[in-house]
């Protein structure tokens, strides 16, 4: 629940409990006849399959027959069952008013097959020790890599030009970074087999605000693309969970195998700062954050999240006319064509 109903005086990322959206609550391959439990904000989601069909309920399937069964919440409209569907290798469950669930609102992911046919090694699960919005902020930010991830992905080094632009609707934020003459990162050199000393790099990040669903499309030339999705599913005010999927079919075999594993190295590096950062955003602070011009996309993200939060706290959960969250984003990502 929102802790402050009136206009926010400070950025309290732990507070943005945004509703009426699909969350990719689990890798499709992690859900079987045996129920698993996931959280979205503070709602429990029990996931299991009946004859292959996915279910998502707010109580354990065994509890349906229990004498002291808890009553169902408005999130399931009294039915205990959340709207659920399966696409792009995820089980998606609705968070909000079940009457508003609409498959057309599912994000479009042009580089993942709709039927979810993705090798297991291209999936990872990373736990972040910060709320979803702080984690998204971390992903939007480009200046921390030198300091936190230097040893894994290599320092950034001097490039010929480095331009960051961003665009947004009331539901999404898209950040594009174009780097010309970027010194080749060690990981590209050693695992990607890139011989050149410099590369052209275009990296697009498309963020769905309500769900923290991030679609990332880094393209290296000479080199290859490393498209991946990072859904920062909010797990209360303190933690978030990311079931990440890569599509690395384009990359050399060794890179393909190792790149997803690097997420397990990079995630803890982010947690090193985000873990102590999160408690400092639980309450409004009398001292405002200071910004540099590199924070522009992140600041826009804060602004858009606050606007959505304010709208929802007044009872308006609708999608604005400027926002088609299910729209084809092939072009936005800089891809030639969608794989499906």
């Amino acid at each position: 629940m929102a802790k402050v109903a009136k206009k926010q005086q400070d950025w309290i990322p732990t507070n943005y409990d945004l509703r009426d959206t699909w969350f990719p609550v689990a890798h499709a391959t992690d859900v079987s006849a045996n129920p698993v439990r996931r959280m979205v904000h503070s709602q429990p989601y029990y996931l299991w399959r009946d004859n292959g069909t996915a279910n998502a309920a707010e109580i354990h399937p065994h509890a349906f027959t229990a004498a002291n069964k808890p009553s169902a919440t408005a999130f399931t409209g009294g039915s205990y069952y959340y709207p659920v569907c399966e696409q792009y290798g995820y089980i998606w469950a609705w968070y909000g008013n079940p009457g508003n669930a609409d498959m057309a609102l599912l994000p479009h992911i042009p580089f993942l097959p709709k039927n979810g046919d993705i090798p297991k090694y291209m999936r990872t699960t990373i736990r972040f020790d910060a709320c979803s919005a702080l984690s998204v902020e971390n992903l939007l930010d480009l200046t921390h890599a030198d300091f936190l991830h230097g040893e894994v992905i290599g320092g950034e080094g001097e490039s010929e030009s480095d331009e960051i632009t961003f665009d947004y609707t009331s539901e999404t934020l898209t950040r594009v970074r174009m780097v010309v003459g970027k010194p080749v990162a060690p990981v590209m050199k050693w695992l990607g087999g890139v011989r050149a000393t410099h590369q052209e790099f275009r990296s697009t990040l498309h963020v769905h605000l309500r769900s923290g669903f991030c679609i990332s499309y880094p393209r290296f030339r000479p080199g290859f693309d490393i498209p991946n999705v990072q859904p920062f599913v909010p797990n209360g005010s303190h933690r978030s969970r990311v079931d990440q999927i890569f599509n690395l079919t384009d990359a050399p075999l060794i890179f393909r195998r190792i790149m997803p594993k690097l997420a397990y190295k990079v995630g803890p590096q982010d947690n090193y700062v985000m873990r102590p950062q999160n408690p400092r955003y639980l309450e409004p602070s009398p001292v405002r954050d200071m910004h540099s011009r590199f924070d522009a996309p992140g600041n826009r993200y804060r602004f858009l999240m606050q606007a959505l939060h304010e709208r929802q706290s007044k009872g308006d959960y609708s999608y604005g006319s400027d926002a088609d969250t299910g729209a084809d984003i092939t072009e936005i990502l800089g891809m030639e064509k969608s794989i499906d």
Binding site: V273, P276, Q277, D289, M290
Partner: peptide, 12 residues
């Protein structure tokens, strides 16, 4: 021990 940018402890 609080960075004025994004509140990370400077002691890190």
């Amino acid at each position: 021990d609080r960075c004025p940018h994004r509140r990370v402890p400077l002691s890190l």
